[in-house]
Nucleic acid binder design. Structure first.
Lengths: 113, 113
DNA sequence: AGGGATGTTCGACATTCATCGAATGTGAGT
DNA sequence: ACTCACATTCGATGAATGTCGAACATCCCT
C-alpha cells in the first residue's frame, strides 16, 4: 500500500470558518512572511526552497508554519518537495477584499527581506 | 501666555507617507487594539478612559501609543483629556480599501477584550 | 490651596517571537 | 545500498511585547 502522500506530520490547516482575523494580520505583519505572500500572490504555487529570502531554512520553515496555521497558505506534498500556495478563494470568502487591499498596499516585492 | 495645548510630550504622529503597512498590520493584530479601532470606527472621537476594555490604565496607554506611532489613530489634547480618533481619510489615501476590509472582516465589537 | 480625575512614564515580569545551528527524516537518483 | 537534496524539528538565545502597580504630572472644581 503506497502511501506516498503522507510523508510527515498531517499538515494541519484550519477550516475556512476557523480562520481568525487577528492571526492573519499577525502573520502578515512580518517582512519575510509578507514577501512570501507577495510572491505567492503572483505565482500561484511554489516550493519552499525557491523563495528569495535571506533567512536560514529552519527560519523559513517556521514562517511557513505561521502562515499555514493562520490559514493564509496551503501546503501539499510532492515527492520530497513541499509546495505552498495562497488560499485566495477561501480568504476572499472569509474576509472579502482583505487580501486584495493588503497586497495592493504592499506594493512591489522587496526582495531580500 | 496660556499654552494649554502643549501639555506633555509633543505627541508625535507619523506623516501619511511614513505610515508603514507592516506596522499597521501589527498594530491591528492585538485584540485590545482591534477593539479600540472598532469603537473608533463607529464613533469618530473618544476619550481614553471611556473604552470598555479590561486592562489597566497604563496598559491602555501603551496600546494607544502603538496605534498612534503606527499612524492608525490621532490624538489631541483637550483639558486633561486626550481625545483619540481614527485617521480614516489618511489611511484610506495611503492604503485604499485596507481599513474598510479589515473592519468589515472584524465583524461586531467583542466587548471586554 | 487642596483634592479628585485623567492619563502618562517607569521599572518589573512573564510570554511570545524571530533567528540560528545541529540533528533528523524522507524521497530521488546513481 | 549509499548519497545527496529538501525540508522539518529541537534546543538555545536575544529581542520585542503585553501586562501590571506605583509614582508622577496636569487640569478642573470646590
Amino acid at each position: 500500500m503506497p502511501r506516498s502522500s503522507q510523508r510527515r506530520a498531517p499538515l494541519h490547516h484550519p477550516a475556512v470558518e476557523e480562520i481568525d482575523l487577528l492571526d492573519v494580520l499577525h502573520a502578515l505583519s512580518d517582512p519575510t512572511r509578507m514577501t512570501i505572500v507577495q510572491i505567492l500572490w503572483a505565482e500561484s504555487e511554489r516550493a519552499c526552497g525557491t523563495f528569495p529570502v535571506d533567512v536560514a531554512p529552519s527560519t523559513l520553515s517556521h514562517h511557513f508554519r505561521v502562515l499555514r496555521e493562520a490559514g493564509v497558505v496551503q501546503q501539499r506534498e510532492e515527492a520530497n518537495r513541499r509546495l505552498t500556495a495562497l488560499r485566495r478563494e477561501e480568504l476572499q470568502a472569509r474576509f472579502p477584499g482583505l487580501l486584495d487591499a493588503v497586497l495592493a498596499a504592499a506594493g512591489p516585492i522587496a526582495t531580500g527581506a
